[in-house]
Computed example of a mutant assay.
Amino acid sequence: MNDPGFHALLTSCHLRLVGTPLGRPEATGEWLYEDAPFGLLAHDASPDPLFTYANRTAQRCFEYGWEEFVGMPSRLSALPGSRESRQELLDAVAGDGYATGYRGLRVAKSGRRFWVEDLTMWNLLGADGALVGQAAAFHRWRDA
Rank of each mutant, 00 (worst) to 15 (best):
T120C: 08
A78I: 00
W31K: 00
A58Y: 04
A108C: 11
G65S: 03
D91L: 06
G126E: 07
V70R: 05
N55M: 14
E84H: 13
G71C: 06
T28C: 03
T120G: 01
L90H: 10
A92G: 04
G97D: 08
V70Y: 05
M121R: 12
Y102F: 15
G126F: 09
R113N: 07
A58F: 06
T52L: 01
R106E: 14
G129V: 02
G29H: 07
T100C: 04
A54M: 15
F62S: 06
R83C: 08
G133Y: 02
M72N: 04
G71N: 06
H139W: 11
M121P: 05
E88K: 15
A78L: 00
D128W: 15
F69G: 02
D44P: 05
L32D: 13
L90D: 08
E67W: 15
F38H: 03
R56I: 07
A130F: 02
A127C: 00
R86W: 10
R56T: 07
W66F: 11
L131Q: 08
S46P: 01
C61R: 04
P49R: 03
W31S: 02
Y64V: 05
W122M: 13
G97A: 07
W115F: 14
F51L: 05
D91Q: 09
Y102V: 13
E84G: 08
G81D: 13
V116K: 05
R86L: 14
A130Y: 02
L90R: 13
E63A: 13
D118K: 15
L41A: 03
L89C: 03
S85R: 10
A127R: 06
P49I: 02
D128C: 11
L124R: 10
D118Y: 07
L131W: 13
A36V: 00
V107F: 00
A130G: 07
Y64M: 05
V132A: 06
R86C: 09
D91R: 05
G71L: 09
A42H: 04
T120K: 08
A108S: 14
D91W: 00
E30Y: 07
S74P: 00
A58D: 05
A58M: 06
R112K: 15
F114M: 04
H139C: 11
G129N: 03
E67V: 13
S46A: 11
P47K: 07
Y64K: 01
D48T: 10
R140T: 10
L119S: 08
M72R: 10
A137K: 08
L89Q: 06
T52I: 04
L50R: 14
Y33P: 03
M72V: 04
R83A: 09
A92N: 03
A99D: 15
L79E: 14
